[in-house]
Design a protein around this nucleic acid. Sequence first.
DNA 1: ATCGGTGGCAATATCGATAAAATCAGGTGG
DNA 2: CCACCTGATTTTATCGATATTGCCACCGAT
Lengths: 357, 357
Amino acid sequence: MVTMREVAQAAGVSTMTVSNVLTGRRHVSPQTRQRVLDVVVRTGYQVNVAARSLRRGRTGIIGLGVPELDSHYFGMLGARLVARLAREGLRVVVEQTGADREGELEAIADSRVNAYDGLILSASGLGSADVAALAGDLPVVMLGERQDMHRFDHVEMSNTAGAEAAARLLLERGCEHLAVIGTPPLERSDDDGGHQDDAFRLRAAGVRRALAEFPGATALAVQERTNHLSTGAALAAEALRRQPRTDGLLCATDTLALGALRGLADLGVHVPDDVLVIGFDDVPAAAYSVPSLSSVSPGHDAMVEATVRLLLRRMRDPSATPEHFVGPWAVVERESTRRGSRPRARRSVGAPAPQRS
Amino acid sequence: MVTMREVAQAAGVSTMTVSNVLTGRRHVSPQTRQRVLDVVVRTGYQVNVAARSLRRGRTGIIGLGVPELDSHYFGMLGARLVARLAREGLRVVVEQTGADREGELEAIADSRVNAYDGLILSASGLGSADVAALAGDLPVVMLGERQDMHRFDHVEMSNTAGAEAAARLLLERGCEHLAVIGTPPLERSDDDGGHQDDAFRLRAAGVRRALAEFPGATALAVQERTNHLSTGAALAAEALRRQPRTDGLLCATDTLALGALRGLADLGVHVPDDVLVIGFDDVPAAAYSVPSLSSVSPGHDAMVEATVRLLLRRMRDPSATPEHFVGPWAVVERESTRRGSRPRARRSVGAPAPQRS
DNA sequence: ATCGGTGGCAATATCGATAAAATCAGGTGG
DNA sequence: CCACCTGATTTTATCGATATTGCCACCGAT
């Protein structure tokens, strides 16, 4: 491993000059610079980031704690954040927390955090006190809605309003017996003081609010703690078993909704003719399922932008007043809630395919 | 930031003893250990990983270079590798290369690599010489099939054999006019010396091999350089436009296949009655699409296990002879290639849902 | 001729932890 | 009673880069 000292000797300068050339900070004469660069190229020198980090006190690495990486939503979020932070010269280490408290504690525990210049955390099982204790003075931006995170910068989506609009859409389309997949029971009050899965509880609250305006309507909530396609399929089946007259399915995430579409297909239930389905998150795959999935879009771009902005701000000024950003949202309606949208006439086997105009 | 020296002073010992307590290496008396641990807990001390890395010469971080993180396949792969390497006490930094040569060069360039103890690289546009030059003496495991990577440890999947089996499945089911989505033209010879997208070229070779056994059959290949759902939808439409009699669709990846399912639905083409569809990778979503997607499963567990094994081996012994692991594979047949599998009878609106038995 | 200013570069002192070697106390066998 | 060993702990010397300070030469201005 070639070191800066060796480069310096080969170029006939001091290590400090090499450092200055590489970081471009101080005044270095063009010929000296060129001489140093030549040696750097020739020897294949690479700065030792450990030494640099130690001396500078910064690593240039941001930790991203998410429940899972192999989900539509967090995969997309991770990809966007990685790309966006790269533009700021920051790299991202993704920590999979597994959506449980232990995993989240582990992810921000001990030595791990001090390798980071900042932390973006999508916590579901962690309280404010936990995060505060473990993160120390590390700049933290919390993702997702939590009720007790006032002391942190916080980027949330409009869980309640978005879910309310989603439920309203189903009800306005004539649904009378909703099933809500992935949220806690709707009967729970808003202020029960629980700290688990706030986002899902708030989405449930939105549904409750919409239901209040449609007196005849009923709703059944079924939940499991996982967020997989298989969970969505299983919960859809359970919902229809427990409430056979279900005619509208509101899913807490698009992943659950996409799984539910499959679960309904297994039961021979047609979407949207028999049951309307709407999801939450507007992941890319939602536009490409069959039928395509209506969803609440939380404004990913705005949220990523806000996350990065808040993080950079706090890294510059650790004592800034915590900011609370609420992203825009919109209901994106697709085939899964459009009653009229039957599949087009089936092409007879062997006939020419329709032309794209 | 509390330092080890401060802990040592507070506990009345030397920094070395604190270090020994924390790493558990040397003989430390129980009472001294306890005294140190008390101070550590009380002060909230955390080791400085930059200093540790500098001194130890290792970081405990593995770089993972993948084309994109927000795809079914690499999202899943990343999640598995992160989880698996965590068990070895190693963390993973994911680098998104964007599937182009520049991005891949960037990902393994300069200072980045020397922050890693090892590198797992899924390269598509990089040659062996590139990787060798940039990675230097860093332990590298290459993922995906490449023809010129003999000097590296290498975990590949059976692209050719898998694609051949997939094509054979379509042909045996009676397809006569295949469309191949996402591969280069089938006419190209195996040994054209090109270095781009080897995996896809090898998959094309497999298709060609299967075709040779079915003299009447034809095949059209359409390709774009991206691997998104939208690409799959667009290419499916293009294939049907250019070859209207297409009755079998073989997609180079499941992501393309899932997009193609949507594209076919847009055209009113029914899968599997009008066109059979098969993908490659067997991502989790393949089992949950409507219709569910037949696919070539490359044995993810075995590949992840082999990747980790080869990486750890090379980290221990940098001079080990490069090993070439070829994962098992299997064709997983689902609805998209099962002609008989019509959707079940549609439930009439309002009728009770079928019971799960 | 002197003085303040500036560009170009080097010497020094860390950043915080740890490997390796040294020290030291307390038994043990001869 | 001493040489010797072993476990417990400390001392010393880095790992490689960089912030800081300082030095020197050279410039125009007074």
